[in-house]
Structures are given as structure tokens and as C-alpha cells.
Nucleic acid binder design. Sequence first.
DNA 1: CTATCATATATCAAAATGATATATCAAAAA
DNA 2: TTTTTGATATATCATTTTGATATATGATAG
Lengths: 177, 177
Amino acid sequence: MARERKIDMVILGLLSHENLTGYDIKKRIDGAINFFWKGSFGNIYPALRDMEQTGLLTKKEESAGGREKITYRITDEGKKVLKNWLREEQASNELKYETLLKLFFGGADNKKISVHNIEIFEEQIKEDLKVLKSYCKALESAPEDKDHLYFYLTASFGVETYEAYLKWCTKAKRMLQ
Amino acid sequence: MARERKIDMVILGLLSHENLTGYDIKKRIDGAINFFWKGSFGNIYPALRDMEQTGLLTKKEESAGGREKITYRITDEGKKVLKNWLREEQASNELKYETLLKLFFGGADNKKISVHNIEIFEEQIKEDLKVLKSYCKALESAPEDKDHLYFYLTASFGVETYEAYLKWCTKAKRMLQ
DNA sequence: CTATCATATATCAAAATGATATATCAAAAA
DNA sequence: TTTTTGATATATCATTTTGATATATGATAG
């Protein structure tokens, strides 16, 4: 993780759509982005502070209702950084699947344990697939916004790979029994 | 990552197969495990030190040829910890795909940039797929070892999902043009 | 009226990442 | 022959991420 802080790009991307607070950003990440990228308060707030200081963002503090609230806006410099990142040739794509790790070492225990672990995975994927499918359907029926195509394509990646996961689950369970 | 150090389980799993040095462990992780889990010297060596101190591993220092070398062996206590982990109900499975992140925010730049980024991804996946298919083929033709089924299933997960990725790439490029 | 939940910011320890430092040994190239 | 390259081998460090927790207010439900 050393080197280039990726959460910065997530934040710049979200702020290129709309002005948001740190809390809002967390909610957005937990939504449609969640299945291919994660974020936490622990890296969002420090990133916002740093990017405000380096001029990629501006902040507006409000305490109208009484509760403090800091809304961030992207600057032209911030937009430039976002574009430069989009145009970079390298991208790091990685899986971190504990289920596969357990299966790889499945020989250390009974086969039934491995089958059960695949079943747990299968149930989780089925749940997530429902959500992804509902995202897709919502985006298909409302193609007005120019960004919708991009949102649709990422959700559709999820749907198609998760369907492949489920097929693999069936096959893997069969081969273990 | 706070809470439970997952690299411990990777190391225990590998050492349940054979005795290894830290360097060997890194090589194993960079092999068949690499596509669903990563490891680095920066977390392998401290984990080995800690687990030796808590009695999950024993070490044997050699400097026969002149070069120092520390080979680790798993203890019964270590095997117990490995089994307990295999039998835990929860497993964290996550994607971290910068390509999807870029695509999600693709509206901030020209469509051609997004198409190009998908092409880069596609080429990478094609390369990785070749490697995974060769793993599968090697494991199919040598089913003697009881662990081979588990290795085969994880590699086969990779093959099937990567093939789904490639189908998605074709569709996504078409929809962007 | 009070418990619970969503909003909102912030910090911290633990862990992962990725780079770098150091040194030996074998093999290939000059 | 000497030198350079690349594999072996351990270790540490700064940066970043993770996941948990602390704190406090406003809204809503029982």
C-alpha cells in the first residue's frame, strides 16, 4: 500500500459527481462501489484533510442545525489529478479470497469442512448477486444520465463473475463428494 | 487488517505440507496462491518470528554452505490453529479492482480512455489465464496426491472467473463504442 | 421520556504493502 | 580470469489500509 494512496482517487471520483461530507463518501463507497473497492473512516478522513491542504479539495464548514458538518468540493487541480490517474497505464487488480485459501489447504482436514465452506461462500454470493442485479435493473431502465453506462458496466461485471462463481460452486461441491 | 493476521494461516497451511524457509514461503505464495492471496517479506518474516515464539512453529538454523538459512516446521499446536481456522464460519472475500474503479469514474474523461483501460485489463487477464490453465492441466494429469484435488479446484475457480471476465470485456467494449 | 438508530468527525493499534538494504553463491559473459 | 548478473536468503522501514472505538447530536419509535 506504500506509494500511492488509492483512496484519494475514490474520493476525487465521487466528488467529481457531487459535493460530499466524509460520512457521505463512506456511504457512497458502501453502496455500488463496495463489491470492488472498500473504504473506511480511518482512511477517508485523513485523505480529505491532506487533499484539502494540498489544494485538490476545498472545504465548507457548516453547523447550521447545531451539528458540525464539513462538505468537500473538488478543485480544478483535483480534477486534473483524477484525469491523470484515469490515463495511467498500470492498474492493480487483486482478489483476496479467504474461501479459496481455506480450500487450497482443505487437505489438512475433513472433506466435509471444505464442502461446508463452499456452501457458506455460495450463500453469500447469492445474496450479493441479488443486490447487484437490482443495481443493473435500475440502471438499465434509466439511461438518461451519461454516467449511468459506467455504473451499469461495473455492476454488470459483478453479475457476470458472481454467476461464474455459482457455477464453480456446484462443480466444486460435486468433485469433493 | 487489525484483529486476525491472515498471513499466519497461509504460512501454517504451507508448512502443513512441507518444512520451508521464509524465502521458500514467499516463492510458494507467488506461485499457485498468488491469484487469490498475496504475501510479502514484510509480513512473512515478522509472522514467522511471532509464531515461533508462541509455539506454533519450531525453527532450525543452518549455515552449512556458509549462507544462513532458517527452516521452519509446524508444531501440533500450529496444526490445531490451522484446523480451527478452516472450521471458522466466516471468511472475508474481497475484490480490489482498480480497473473497475477507473471505469466507474470513466465519465470524468473521454470514452476512449475507458475502452483502452478495459483493453489493458483484457491483455493482463489473458496472460494470467494461460498460467492458470497450465496449472489445471498439470493437476488433472496427476491426480495421485490427495491435495491435488484442492489445488485443482482453486485453479479452476481462476480459470472459470477469468473466462467470465473476458466475456464481460467484449461486451463492455461494445457498449462503450 | 427514554432507548435506539442514523448522522458526523476523529483517532488508534494492528496489519499489509512495497520498497530497500545487506550479503552469499552460482552461472554466464566479458 | 574477472566481472556482472541473477537467484537465494533475511530483515527492516515508511506509508497505507483495516477495523475498532470514542464522542456527540438529531430524529424516531416505543
